[in-house]
């Protein structure tokens, strides 16, 4: 059976992994390749690298990071952050990534998803969606087929959560599937960073709406939260940062926990 996936997410700034990484005895905990290898040994099913560098030369830095990681690590690798053109996608894939994740660029230029999928295949186009619960007073603005309406529960945000778009998350999810996305990485901005659990309602609604895999993100604080995302949220994979980086739980422990509860995972 297809296993549910556990995916650690690493933030990379100027070629270095940031956020506390206290659990593994590494010579250099900020080295992406070394950390990726440690997660691989622990049983991570995939890795996501998110480039949070603000500067314009970050592309080249990220490419060299991906090249180094792919020398050591033989599990799937997704790279996101600042990818804007088909050529950006090509370079990242050539460097050794298997998938790219696009967020703001997909909203600004939906054709990017279509062109990337056409050129490199649906399986390598991940669309990341940052979702925030709609407060009724916000429902207004441009009318188009993706716009928020009276039934909308979540709005799409871009630019790292700074900009609202007036786009309905569920409609956008269906749209990116149509454009050729192979997977959706769905982050709840309301839950992210709080470690109180994923937004189950959001994850389930989107997962049932689309026929491509959905990765739940934002809010994991304990192992039961991972279980809930799979069992109640119908997620195909879970992304988590804090609970693994800070050494609260190991991937192996998470897998034992899920396995004992009947979730199909790779051991």
């Amino acid at each position: 059976m297809l296993a549910k996936r556990i995916i650690p997410c690493l933030d990379v700034d100027a070629g270095r992994v940031v956020k506390g990484i206290s659990f593994v005895q590494l010579r250099d905990a900020g080295d992406p390749a070394e950390l990726a290898a440690a997660y691989d040994r622990e049983g991570a099913d995939e890795l996501v690298f998110l480039d949070i560098t603000a500067s314009s030369d970050s592309r080249e830095t990220m490419i060299s990071v991906v090249e180094k990681v792919s020398e050591k690590v033989f599990i799937p690798l997704t790279v996101g952050g600042g990818i804007r053109t088909v050529d950006d996608i090509r370079k990242i894939l050539r460097a050794g990534a298997d998938k790219v994740s696009v967020n703001t660029a997909a909203v600004l230029n939906p054709c990017l998803v279509k062109e990337g999928a056409g050129r490199f295949g649906n399986q390598c186009m991940v669309v990341a969606i940052d979702a925030k619960a709609v407060v009724s007073a916000q429902k207004s603005g441009v009318l188009n087929d993706l716009a928020l309406d009276e039934n909308s529960a979540w709005e799409v945000y871009t630019h790292g959560g700074r900009n609202s778009t007036n786009i309905d998350v569920v409609k956008w999810a269906a749209k990116v599937e149509e454009l050729g996305a192979g997977e959706i990485l769905l982050t709840s901005m309301d839950k992210d960073g709080h470690q109180q659990g994923y937004d189950i309602e959001l994850i389930r609604t989107v997962s049932e709406q689309v026929s491509i895999p959905v990765i739940a993100s934002g809010g994991a604080g304990n192992l039961d939260h991972l279980y809930q995302a799979f069992e109640l949220g119908k997620a195909d994979a879970v992304l988590a940062a804090s609970i693994f980086h800070f050494g609260t739980y190991s991937i192996e422990k998470a897998k034992q926990f899920l396995d004992a509860r009947g979730v199909v995972i790779r051991r």
Binding site: M1, L2, D98, C124, P213
Partner: peptide, 30 residues
Amino acid sequence: VPHMGWNQVVINKEHKIMRGISSSAYFYFA
């Protein structure tokens, strides 16, 4: 669809290229 992630491969017969790999091991599909 896509069938994305780790799934098991049941090996139907012996073959030298699968030496050292047990049946039902997980491999990555996309």
